Computed example of a mutant assay.
Amino acid sequence: MKFYSYILFFLLTSLGFSQAEETFDKANTAYADDQFDQAIQLYNSVLDEGLVSAELYFNLGNAYFKQNDLANAIFHYEKALQYNPADQDIKENLEIANTQTIDKVKEAPESNLKSVMYTITHALKLDSWALVSIILSISFGALMIFYFRSPSAKGKRRNFSFAILFLVLAIASVLFGRFQNQLQESQSFAIVFENQLPAFVEPNPRSDINFELNKGTKVSLGSTFRDYIRIELSDGSKGWVKISAIKKL
């Protein structure tokens, strides 16, 4: 009985994926025909099925951008980068969208080491780092076999040197992937979905206003209090805004 249940589950899952793929193709066709409202509706229906990918978020961001909905465009570009941080097309479109936002927030200076580490760890996706570490580990094992079976001392030294190199690279790839994962888990961001959104000194609408934000601005999230959440901009500015005015990435 379990066997037939597994078969039924597999068939239903396959059917769901095929339907989602068909909907995705229809959305792409609608986008190509400049029917952006329909494309957005179809892309979102795929998301509602629980199927996500960098390509889906990227295409949805493009559709919103064509509708001049910068907040949603930036939000979905950022979501696409979470799934594929090395994609240059996503980065370029996100940069273009950010240039059209009202708020121009400068980046706070950071250390060269931190910048280099961020660039390296986000050069590949998490699953790509895992694949690289597996390939390097297998290569290390193969070279160690060649080391023990090599008849000459010169061959042993060469194989051992390469084996150590591949081992170091395998460990490094694991650490880079782990660092990227920890960075994503430790940092929480959101996109602002209101214009002239006041950022208060305290979580109280009667307190002083530090600054105002507009649609499309990316903020870092902190603690919450009732209907307010503490946010921080990339230049270090901080304040409290309404939770309902932002959308968490």
Rank of each mutant, 00 (worst) to 15 (best):
F3V: 11
F3H: 13
F3T: 14
Y6C: 15
Y6K: 09
F9G: 00
L11D: 04
L12R: 00
S18C: 07
E21C: 01
E22K: 07
E22I: 02
D25W: 01
N28R: 05
D33C: 05
F36G: 07
D37A: 01
Q38R: 04
Q38K: 06
I40C: 00
Y43P: 06
V46G: 05
L47R: 07
D48T: 14
G50L: 14
G50T: 12
A54M: 05
E55Q: 14
Y57H: 08
G61N: 04
G61C: 09
N62T: 05
A63E: 06
A63D: 11
A63I: 05
A63G: 09
Y64N: 02
D69V: 00
D69I: 00
A71W: 05
N72I: 00
I74V: 07
F75P: 00
F75R: 03
F75K: 04
Y77R: 10
K79A: 15
K79H: 12
K79W: 13
K79I: 13
L81F: 10
Y83A: 02
Y83T: 00
A86T: 09
Q88F: 06
Q88D: 15
K91T: 00
K91C: 00
E92Q: 09
E92N: 08
L94M: 06
E95R: 14
N98C: 02
Q100S: 03
T101Y: 03
I102K: 08
D103R: 01
V105L: 12
V105K: 04
E107C: 00
P109K: 14
S111Q: 04
N112M: 08
K114Q: 12
Y118L: 07
Y118G: 02
T119C: 07
T119N: 15
T121P: 00
T121M: 02
H122A: 04
W129L: 11
A130W: 11
L131Y: 03
L131K: 11
I135E: 07
I138K: 03
F140M: 01
A142F: 15
L143V: 02
M144G: 05
I145F: 14
F146H: 06
P151N: 08
P151M: 06
S152A: 02
G155I: 03
G155Q: 01
K156G: 15
F160G: 06
F160H: 13
S161V: 15
A163E: 07
A163Q: 12
I164E: 04
I164S: 03
F166D: 11
F166G: 01
I171Y: 05
S173D: 04
L175Y: 04
F179M: 04
F179K: 03
Q184G: 05
Q184H: 03
Q187S: 12
S188I: 11
S188Q: 15
F189L: 10
A190L: 11
I191H: 02
I191S: 10
A199Q: 01
F200I: 04
F200E: 03
V201A: 06
V201H: 01
E202P: 00
P203M: 10
P205L: 03
E212I: 04
N214T: 01
G216N: 08
T217N: 03
K218E: 07
S220Q: 09
S220Y: 06
L221H: 13
L221S: 14
S223I: 08
S223T: 13
R226C: 13
R226Q: 10
R226N: 11
R230F: 15
I231N: 07
E232T: 05
G236M: 09
S237Y: 01
K238R: 13
W240G: 11
K242P: 06
S244L: 11
K247P: 10
K247A: 14
K248P: 08
L249I: 05
